[in-house]
Nucleic acid binder design. Structure first.
Lengths: 331, 331
DNA sequence: CTGAAAGCGCTAACAC
DNA sequence: GTGTTAGCGCTTTCAG
């Protein structure tokens, strides 16, 4: 086995508790002793076993993060935020990819439970009842969903929708399509509510299409439906879909943004990676990850229903108005 | 505290050892006893504490993965592969984002060391000496780099370069630029060797440019240099750069692939997400992650210098030949 | 087949 | 300030 606290104690000619203290409460040991202990530890290459420590303290210094799909830029950005914040707090991140499967989600929560101080559940796919059963297994924070009275980090995408609709409305668009993602998506519901509130207020008609898979292919598939409904703009569930839409529009000879405006959600990097004029609602994903970890670390007293809303912002890349007559106020 | 093995033992009216055995060596306990134990455990919601188990068995059931940047699609794909393979082996993944910083890399290896059965180091940025110091702290597997006699998973990108050069050469390109990424990249070195070997053989002249940051911006920056050197094709370090190149070419009014062919490395998803004719060398990243975990799990006897090479493949999306006169064999 | 007991590496009272 | 000791939750001899 590796070098333990006993080896250090022996070599430094002190007791194990002194070594332990030198690491955990340095100010409690004589400076000289401390120096010697730390030096010996360094020489021996001693690193405290965090698992053993966790066993007795009850706190592990690990943060669990469960995502539906690491390869999804949305979640890898969240993950990056979590990892960064965790590191600042001298914690390490435990990751599980739930492969979009609710059962796997529950399973990994169980597997990580005792090895972490808390778990960030990103856009969990399970239903409320399943979620309830996880409460108590470990401190939980939801990201991108509010449920089961758990603390949650949420993005105000309803407001993002509002900004998008307002923008399009101001340009003269009167009929826009909303391409929804997976039906079970909490964020999707939330956006839809935002859409239904914003559309009448901006004098635009919202055509609700979907659900579609939140992918490039989903975008392709959705485009033809949108085109058939005679809209002049589409609001896609995420950037992957939006890029699919752009591709399909190009294939069908529809020019963007002259004949059709496209607005995407989620990922800022992605939109900078297409040469197409894609307008985006920027979601602060990395900040969301950081905030979720914050909540976990602060969680001394389980404040009931603690929710943190993060703002979203419309990034406009194209301002072309639709070809239809733009109504002018006549007074 | 949560429900421990003692609670189960008490409730099932057996000893802790029996409960333990029911989980770890089921065939060693009487079927009837086993059934009862497992049932009671289920009812109580008991989950073995893996940290405690690890303390005595020496094996934790955790796999550590260190990546320079989770948000990079290349690494998130690797991560996905690792997570998938780990799950199959009933292991969990411990993730650390090293933020492209060699020091952080060494640090997190230390932090994870005792909590994992082994660590996958993805494209480590540290130099050989620093790497040497990590050997022994924990079983290590390198991904995308060969060094310090450690087992490694490598992608045969030199062969990918060969395929790309051969392809371009066959189309009549005689002068192509190679945009390299970070200078310290092992994979970069390896590709460069591939390039230098392939270019003369295919009768093309390779203009080596760089190093550039392996980003969208890096591509922008590199493009102007490439253009000034009068090449008809560029081979970008990765797809992010390639997309930057495409954007910059568009901005400068250079049409692709008529006036310039662009070949990228790495990410297959990415290339399906641009409407531009981007040809790619496909890197089997997810498979690489899986393989790395395989190596870790198999690692009974530390086989000296065990290396696994994964094939790469050119995905051609555009076959336009350059405008320069194509040499025709006259015989 | 099952139970009792000895730790895994560490921290946290409790003494000195 | 420092040492001693009792566990944290679990597996694993060693006896029955």
């Amino acid at each position: 086995m590796a070098v333990t606290i006993h080896h250090v104690a022996r070599a430094a000619e002190v007791s194990v508790s002194t070594v332990s203290r030198a690491f955990t409460v340095p100010e409690m040991v004589h400076p000289q002793t401390r120096r010697k202990v730390l030096q010996v530890a360094e020489e021996l290459g001693y690193q405290p076993n965090r698992a053993a420590r966790g066993l007795v303290t009850g706190r592990t210094g690990n943060i669990g993060v469960v995502v539906p799909d690491v390869a999804n830029p949305f979640f890898s950005a969240v993950l990056k935020g979590c990892a960064a914040r965790a590191r600042e707090a001298r914690h390490v991140v435990f990751l599980a990819d739930a492969a979009e499967d609710p059962r796997v989600e529950a399973e990994v929560v169980g597997a990580m439970a005792k090895q972490v101080d808390g778990i960030v559940l990103c856009s969990p796919r399970e239903d409320s009842a399943q979620l309830d059963r996880l409460v108590g297994i470990a401190p939980l924070v939801l990201l991108n969903r509010a449920d089961s009275g758990l603390p949650a980090v949420l993005m105000d995408s309803a407001d993002g929708v509002r900004q998008a609709v307002e923008h399009l409305g101001a340009l003269g668009h009167r009929r826009i399509a909303h391409l929804s993602g997976p039906a079970s998506s909490w964020a999707g519901e939330h956006r839809l509510r935002g859409l239904r509130a914003a559309a009448p207020a901006c004098d635009v008609e919202a055509v609700e299409l979907g659900p579609f898979p939140p992918t490039f292919q989903g975008g392709i598939q959705a485009t033809d439906l949108a085109l058939a409904r005679g809209v002049t703009a589409v609001l896609a569930f995420n950037d992957l879909m939006a890029i699919g839409v752009l591709n399909r529009l190009a294939a069908r000879g529809v020019s963007v943004p002259e004949e059709m405006s496209v607005v995407g959600f989620d990922d800022i990097e992605m939109s900078s990676m297409t040469t197409q004029p894609l307008t985006t609602v920027r979601m602060p994903m990395e900040a969301a990850g950081r905030t979720a970890v914050d909540l976990l670390l602060d969680e001394q007293q389980p404040g009931p229903q603690l929710q943190r809303w993060l703002p979203t912002q419309l990034i406009v890349r194209s301002t072309t108005a639709p070809r239809m007559p733009v109504p002018v106020a006549t007074r």
